[in-house]
Design a protein around this nucleic acid. Sequence first.
DNA 1: TCTCTCACATG
DNA 2: GCATGTGAGAG
Length: 529
Amino acid sequence: MANGGDQFGLAERPNSDCIDSPKDTKQENHSYTLNSPASPQTASSQQGMEGIKVFLHDRDLWMKFDEVGTEMIITKAGRRMFPSYKVKVTGLNPKTKYILLMDIVPGDDHRYKFADNKWSITGKAEPAMPGRLYVHPDSPATGAHWSRQLVSFQKLKLTNNHLDPFGHIILNSMHKYQPRLHIVKADENNGFGSKNTAFCTHVFPETAFIAVTSYQNHKITQLKIENNPFAKGFRGSDDNELHRMAKLQGKDYPVVPRSTVRQRACSTGSPFSGEGRGLRGSPDAVGSPYNCENGLSSSSPQELLSASSTHYTLPHPHLQRGHQSQVYHCTKRKVEEDCSPGTRQHPYKKPFTGSSPCEGDSYYHPSSFPPPPPGLSNNHTMGITDSPYSSDMGQRQACMFAGSEPRLDEHSCTSWSYTCPLPSAMTPMEPYPHYTPHPPYSPSPQGSRLSAIAHQSSPPLGDQVTHDPYQSQSSGPPAQSSQHIHSRQLSPPLREYPRYTPNLSPPLYHTLETHTHIRCGIPEWSAAS
DNA sequence: TCTCTCACATG
DNA sequence: GCATGTGAGAG
């Protein structure tokens, strides 16, 4: 990959904590954290999560895409993300075990279209897909392990197949999404079901993207070709390109360069870029600004979280950079309201028990897993979304999820990073039907654990959002930004497990499906019903 | 008109 | 065998 130099780009700045207060607006290279209003417990509950810092690897590359308006292809079979999501994590206790997982939440509740060389809103988002968590295959592992090298989520795949049996993260085309990283402290059992499970969430606004079934903006296509080693077959001079195309098409030379192909009007500026019209600002495009207290715009809380899953509001592009350092709070009123930590927890639905093995990189979490070691389940993917939301999917999924929970929407934080408590309430949803079919991974302790973790942990955006500042690039390696979301303790233990049976096929992605609902600060992944 | 899918070529 | 973009054709 073309990595910027930052390989580890870390600015190692230790400062951010998960818990930073809003004030911390650091504009340094490291991340910020916003606290959400209500996090009473937070501070204390952070349990050692405060000093954790996460640096986005290859941030420069991400920024390049972000400036244009990142697009990620989603296919029925699953497509990897490019740039790959890789991070450098510091501040972990070397001996403590952590589970690292990712989820991708809606950036807002709009559907987009690309016309006139720019993205614009065309309507309301479709129901969120079942949220799934991708548990890093190495989980659980010690802080020393995670800190040793970059933590790569490159094997994570995105799909538009609502019935995906592989555990890939399910997304809707032409919708905006925000990847999030969750670090969950494993409990004694390497799980995270216990009450005090601490976790923190990190969000890098520059990793937001719009899911597409085919590239819309040729600039993105070119960036992918130029930077993705697997696409180098498409590199070359224009001339060669034309010839190549002609050959392929059996046409005579001049052929329209593909670059011109989808570009309707090419223009320089990509909608996203520049002014902040990036994905993050989607609303902008549309005109719906989301504002954060800081002045950042964010989508309304509801919007952010809405979609049953959580919507994550993306910051405007510019914000990211220029103001990056600002601390955004998301605020959230609702959060406050609801947030009483105790307030909205969800009941868990099912505990995860599965055991699954982890294979390779990912684990699946089927719904039905054997009970993993305490607290853990195997799934790698958990559904995060909420069912309520969806219509189609919703229904389908609805089945899967039992409980109904409030949505995140209401609580929303918009900002980049927030601290969320883990899902205390994460409730694994009910089994994901589709998932089920496949046999779970081989049971591996890890798997189980992970899954469990995932369930609990995958935090939806919750109450608190913290924003981590980007690390500035100034010093050294490109800074990587990270936002933190705070961690909190997971409150309630998981309830039930989803029962799926995963089938995991070979490609095992460890993903767990869950529903997330964040209520006040505490995200909850529960089923909706 | 817009999206999505699929066979295909490349590395 | 896998990852990736292409582009025709379907819906």
